[in-house]
């Protein structure tokens, strides 16, 4: 008998007008693993994240997190339960310093006296020491993404959803970020679910991969299985008859 998955979705469906952004998706994520969620632009990855984290309500289906159906639960309660995320288009707290932004996350589980320690810990872990007093609006993309991960990690999640953290980074930055995420996964046993465009990152990081195309789950499996899967190759390379438009939040 397999252990109970930390996250399970059942018949999850969401449409915007005539466009079915997420169509009947069922996936399972096990505790402690790193899974990837890939697919071409407009495949519904971000919408899927929004449904899971409670930012949008699904038309149909369930999201079961740690055995609880969290559909229609407000996002902050879902976070209290132990799930947090980052955003594809970074949502930084522009006027706040890096330290303060992380502090907002740290308050999720800790009181006034312990918060500072957590912030220091996060700053050290993600090597943000040089910029800890810098305003978020003055940061470059790589640092911003890191701060977002640090901020979400500070909430002490059991499941962390990362929405395209690798997009726009140089390969050096990418390799460093991957190492940090791996370390994070090993040290804190946090489950990671990564939406990614950058193949290098998904293949190097994830143990299992789900592939979405046009709102549907078309394949799942180990990285090398996926890269040889005919359907996946087609989805990425062929038959792109519809206009690309990302159903972002």
């Amino acid at each position: 008998m397999l252990p109970e998955p930390i996250l399970k979705t059942l018949e999850l469906t969401k449409s915007f007008g005539n466009l079915i952004a997420v169509n009947n998706i069922e996936i399972e994520i096990n505790r402690g693993e790193i899974v990837g969620l890939i697919g071409p632009n407009g495949a519904g990855k971000t919408t899927f994240f929004n449904l899971v984290t409670g930012l949008e309500a699904p038309d149909k289906g369930q999201v079961v997190f740690k055995g609880v159906n969290i559909v229609s639960m407000p996002p902050h309660k879902i976070c209290k339960l132990g799930m947090s995320r980052t955003f594809q288009i970074t949502r930084s707290f522009g006027e706040m310093s890096v330290e303060d932004a992380i502090r907002v996350g740290a308050y999720n589980r800790l009181g006034e006296n312990e918060v500072q320690k957590k912030v220091d810990e996060m700053v050290e872990f993600f090597e943000l020491g040089d910029i800890r007093k810098t305003k978020c609006s003055d940061l470059g993309l790589a640092s911003l993404r890191k701060v977002e991960v640090a901020r979400a990690t500070a909430t002490e999640p059991e499941l962390l959803l990362l929405d395209e953290v690798g997009a726009g980074l140089t390969s050096v930055e990418l390799i460093k970020l991957m190492a940090e995420l791996k370390k994070l996964n090993q040290e804190t046993e946090v489950t990671l679910c990564v939406v990614e465009h950058v193949m290098q990152m998904v293949m190097g990081l994830c143990e299992r991969i789900f592939v979405l195309d046009a709102g549907k789950l078309i394949a799942k499996g180990m990285p090398d299985e996926i890269s040889n899967n005919q359907k996946v190759v087609e989805a990425y390379l062929g038959r792109r008859s519809y206009i690309e438009s990302d159903v972002a939040c």
């Binding site: 984290t53 902050h76 947090s84 949502r91 006027e95």
Partner: peptide, 13 residues
């Protein structure tokens, strides 16, 4: 004041 969506997923009511 900076971004409500971001705070909401950090557990802020």
């Amino acid at each position: 004041g900076e971004d409500e969506t971001a705070t909401e997923v950090l557990g802020v009511d």
